[in-house]
Design a protein around this nucleic acid. Structure first.
Lengths: 338, 338
DNA sequence: TTCAAAAATACAATCGATTGTATTTTTGGG
DNA sequence: CCCAAAAATACAATCGATTGTATTTTTGAA
């Protein structure tokens, strides 16, 4: 039943050698055009389909790149993936998409599987749980080129494509301040991830610029899921210090908070102005629409892929890690316009 | 640089045969425990990692299943994928996720790549452009088990996991009627896809039940992107027959229409009530919140995977295609409550 | 017509792991 | 202490394609 046509079957059918068939199918100049035609038509007739397992094994390389993201359902990540696919496709590479679901264990497993499948390279954005880099160091020692995008780890010799999160956090916070907020809460994520550390740094920087005292109790750390936003909102309201602004390190948690505030009858933005991060599509339509920081996902995907492919095709081993930093932009909507 | 440790390296280091190493790594009872221990520790020491290309080639099978969806960014599909991953992971299978982006060409390419990589089976939801089944018939002849979910084609011997779209369309339309609508427009998709044909059939069935004349000019066909919804809304408004209800075969187009209506100052649901389909997260937060039909994505993914794995592990060739039909449920929100 | 160069094709090893069969080693009952 | 059975290990073929080298065939200039 299974299609078992191999180059040997074709060779036998035409009484020629398998090596010639292989070369013909790869359009090698060493094979006569007439022979190529015969082989191609016979291959077609027999429903031949190259066995990439065998091919890749022999060539000791694949033209597949692995992509690991925390969740494909996040708009930012699916945009990045689109960018990756486009760039990879143009270069003749396939893409395997995997999601860690923010779990270190899954991330480890995925790295293992990708390496076992001998992918040509890996693009990844680490999970929130990733505080242990063994699997990544392993991949590095192993010689598999990889590159971080958005969420990275500091590993010697590994490049990354990032956005300027300090600036993003600064812009978001400054925007709130310029709209009259004086007591601004902040939802942050795991501090092991520099994106969250940096957004927080931007927040603090903005407070400093405007001489607003930094109150650590207004900064809540969580996994930034919707439920975390809801609970964070509750926590903030319970503080003696009343907040009038909130900068959340992602849109999802911001929305969780919005729902809670709305439920409590708190007016947004009048009583509390809110700014998110990532520009999820949902943020545009929620009421009030959510001011947020837009990240160029598609472009990040394209650039990352281009850099990774360079790395893959680089013969030399001179590792020159570089950080590519892209700009984000604030999108002003109703949740912050007082 | 590249990690080249093979079972032969381990074998040589321990002065034993590679076959023993292989058996040890696979925990075969034919190898002495002490030897296993030595091999395992040496493998660890050398940073050995099984080459799945070689392994799969030899075994002539992989434990990878391919998944093809139109777009990973659609909430419904990412839920299905989560279900698939969970079920596959439990059974020791890996998952390759691919998106056709609604393009037939890409779907064809993806099928080719998956077959070339000898995946154990494929789960797919066809693209809107898919009107030609050659690539799928090819996969069938080839003997690769596959199964449709949500969007299927009628191919002899191929099972599918679907939801009851006629019922869903009926429920949506009846809901509008019971809320007082008499002139209900409908956004439909390509009629080659039975999901859209069926939702339309449900729409018509509901009209018949309530003795409302069916007006074909109120049914617009498109790719159901947001822009199609916006344009569809414009078209519907230009008709002599004024509509007071709209059933869109997906949420995205419904939202496109909502935006247009809101822009035109048309009140929802008072002047026009709207029901979508798929329950995208965005539908819950848009203002007014969108009534929609929820599909059990996660469950669809789990069931599909279970059935596919059965198919894969079935030795016999007796093809007994079956359709599994799941129920959808209407979620009533503000866009339809008059 | 001849023959060296070029073109076309065949041969054979190889990628790394698996697995059926053969051989060696160990075990334990008599 | 011997030997058959069991256990452990070694040998060798194989999966399907690729590729360096060798051989055969063709070409065309002298």
């Amino acid at each position: 039943m299974k299609n078992k046509t191999t180059i040997h079957d074709i060779a036998k059918a035409l009484s020629i050698d398998a090596s010639t068939v292989s070369r013909a199918l790869n359009n090698s100049p060493r094979v006569n055009q007439k022979t190529k035609d015969r082989i191609l038509s016979k291959a077609n007739e027999l429903g031949y389909q190259r066995n990439l397992l065998a091919s890749n094994l022999r060539k000791n390389k694949t033209n597949t790149i692995g992509v690991i993201v925390p969740r494909i359902s996040r708009h930012f990540f699916s945009s990045v993936i689109s960018g990756i696919e486009e760039a990879a496709y143009d270069a003749g590479y396939n893409v395997i998409i995997c999601q860690s679901l923010e779990q270190l264990k899954r991330e480890r497993d995925i790295v293992g599987t990708l390496l076992a499948n001998r992918v040509a390279g890996v693009l990844l954005s680490v999970s929130m749980e990733t505080n242990d880099y063994d699997h990544l160091l392993n991949m590095k020692n192993n010689g598999t080129p990889f590159l971080f995008f958005d969420r990275h780890c500091d590993i010697e010799g590994i490049s990354s494509v990032l956005i300027d999160d300090v600036q993003g956090g600064f812009d978001a916070t400054e925007h709130l301040i310029l709209n009259g907020c004086k007591n601004i809460g902040h939802f942050s994520g795991p501090q092991k991830l520099s994106i969250y550390k940096n957004r927080l740094a931007g927040y603090i920087k903005a407070l400093e610029k405007y001489k607003i005292p930094y109150r650590p109790e207004l900064v809540l750390r969580s996994s930034l899921m919707e439920i975390d936003g809801t609970e964070g909102a509750k926590t903030l309201l319970s503080l003696p210090h009343k907040i009038d602004g909130l900068f959340s390190a992602n849109d999802i948690a911001a929305i969780g908070a919005m729902k809670y505030f709305k439920n409590e009858g708190i007016r947004i933005p009048d009583e509390i102005a809110i700014v998110g991060f990532s520009n999820e599509p949902i943020s545009e339509v929620i009421d009030p629409s959510l001011t947020t920081i837009d990240q160029p996902g598609f472009q990040i995907g394209q650039i990352s892929t281009k850099l990774l492919l360079e790395e893959i095709n680089k013969s030399s081993n001179l590792k020159k890690a570089n950080k590519t930093i892209l700009k984000s932009s604030l999108i002003e909507r109703d949740s912050s316009r007082k």
